[in-house]
């Protein structure tokens, strides 16, 4: 699974803006979206079929039942979503703050600090969180969020800073308050860039949530962990493939939301 990073995210934005302006390009994009959904559903369906029909030993069967695969996938999805929610709640207000007049000068250092979160090995972050706050879901989700905050924070700042300053001035010149200008002009225009950051973070955290297996946080990582510990290759591979399929699915979902959330005239 390839993980998109900051610079790749910005490139994606440029791509998005050209596809929306050029006619004809939109259906192609829709075609790609359908293809991606079909691919991840196909992989997941194949895994379910395998789990149902394969000749498994009793240890394997305990780890690879249909219900167990579905439950762990759902847990995994929730872990990633919870972390994403936390990231959004933290990064969007912080990002907005960093584009406001006097706070602007903190924008570079704080983005750099957020960069450490991503540069640090994810496993280290998660273990530290487990050491200080115990194992289980909540500390794990927090550690994931730290890991995923950078792309969102960076894209909120880039997105808002990228809004044509003349439009902001036009808004203020018409008598819109600073807050109203933010909500009705700056944020709507920055949505495509912000959503790209959110999508990047989601995919990143879906992959990283596999480490939840090591700290008792649940999710598909449990299969990977068990597979490694007990030397059950098929359990390990099913877990890894399911994570990849889920990451693709979440990316697809985020793309759909991104398309729907992008204001029509852009």
């Amino acid at each position: 699974m390839s993980i998109a990073t900051g610079p790749a995210a910005t490139e994606d934005v440029a791509d998005a803006s050209t596809t929306t302006t050029a006619d004809g390009a939109a259906p192609m994009r829709r075609g790609r979206a359908v293809g991606q959904l079909v691919a991840c559903l196909a992989v997941f369906g194949a895994l379910l079929v395998y789990v149902a029909v394969a000749d498994l030993s009793s240890v394997e069967a305990r780890n690879l039942s249909t219900t167990r695969l579905l439950t762990l996938s759902w847990q995994h999805f929730l872990l990633a979503m919870a972390a994403a929610l936390l990231v959004i709640v933290l990064a969007i207000p912080l990002g907005i703050l960093l584009t406001r007049g006097p706070m602007r000068r903190f924008s570079t250092p704080i983005t750099a600090v957020a960069g450490f979160g991503q540069a640090a090995p994810a496993i280290g972050l998660i273990v530290i969180a487990a050491l200080y706050f115990g194992t289980g879901r909540f500390p794990f989700v927090c550690a994931l969020a730290v890991y995923g905050i950078l792309p969102v924070l960076a894209n909120v700042v880039t997105g808002i800073d990228g809004v044509d300053p003349r439009l902001v001035e036009a808004a203020r010149g018409m008598g819109m308050s600073a807050f109203s200008t933010l909500v009705r002009v700056e944020l709507p225009l920055a949505i495509p860039v912000i959503m790209t950051g959110v999508r990047t973070a989601l995919v990143l955290m879906t992959g990283t949530a596999a480490l939840g297996g090591f700290v008792n946080a649940g999710g598909l990582g449990t299969l990977v962990n068990t597979g490694i510990k007990l030397g059950l290759d098929n359990v390990l591979i099913v877990g890894a493939l399911a994570i990849a399929a889920l990451a693709l699915f979440i990316d697809w979902l985020a793309r759909i939301i991104e398309m729907a959330a992008t204001p029509k005239g852009l």
Binding site: L167, E169, G173, V185, P188, L189, P263, G265
Partner: peptide, 10 residues
Amino acid sequence: IQGAGLFPHL
């Protein structure tokens, strides 16, 4: 202003 400064999303 120059270039009208219309809001593209409205």
